[in-house]
Amino acid sequence: MKVESLKIIALFLCLLFVACDQKDINTTAKVTVVLHAEGIDEVSEIELKAHDINMNKDYTESALVITVPVGYFDLSVHALGDGKAIRAYKRGVKVERDCTIEMEASFVPQGDDNFVLAEIFFAGTETPEGKRYIGDKFFVVFNNTTDTLAADGLILVEADLNSVQKYDLGDQDFRDQYFAVDAMYRIPGDGQTYRVAPGQVILIADNAMNHTEANANSFDLSVADFEWYDVSSSAGSTDVDNPDVTNLDKIYCYTQTIWVPHNQGHKSFGLAHVFRKE
């Protein structure tokens, strides 16, 4: 062999000794949760769950410390604070090494003696020609309890203040105590007329009619349980009243014509907490 080819072989042999430096890669990490629960003295019955987003696996621990493999997680804490249920959530937590995560706990609405608004359809629908149709707005009220409840007297309200506007009310700010409304429609009845079984819904529509004639992309709301009807002062914008569907009692509304929830959802809605338990 020639000296040059020997050098080349020696060079290639050197490559065998060249290798990647094995860095210390963590495979698991310890996550410590610091739970901030304002106004709560005692936190008990803690259940900490970490959901691995990429692997779709769950890890559970009954303490505020958990060891998980490295990755991206959604964290949730279910606990009892002073005897009442509290929750804390954090999404998209990147876990590469041991870390401490701060989470804020808040009370869970008890949901065991209430109707809830399950769906607020405010947007209207688009017609096949790309135009807008707004006659088919509705609300779905859901019985979120394990008892049969009477819907009589339940009031659907719309907030007066606009959700996307900043209000500087100064020392007249009432929002921590009161909810200002500009529309109130009440389900009629004597207290036992409209009974809703657990897990059942009430459909309240603006116009309880078959909207597919006006807009093929809309739906048939003639099966609604209730509808709201406004007497309009203008002939150009009139409300429709389906005689087969019960009308809500109109307590108050700001408009002189017909009430249509805001197209872009700039208003909040609520249910006035009037109910009777069976």
């Binding site: 807008r132 149709y133 006659g135 006006a214 807009n215 150009g236 914008s237 009139t238 429709v240």
Partner: peptide, 13 residues
């Protein structure tokens, strides 16, 4: 113009 009614019943006055 192509007109689509946005609410169900409107009079043709």
């Amino acid at each position: 113009r192509f007109v689509q009614l946005t609410t169900p019943k409107n009079p043709a006055i």
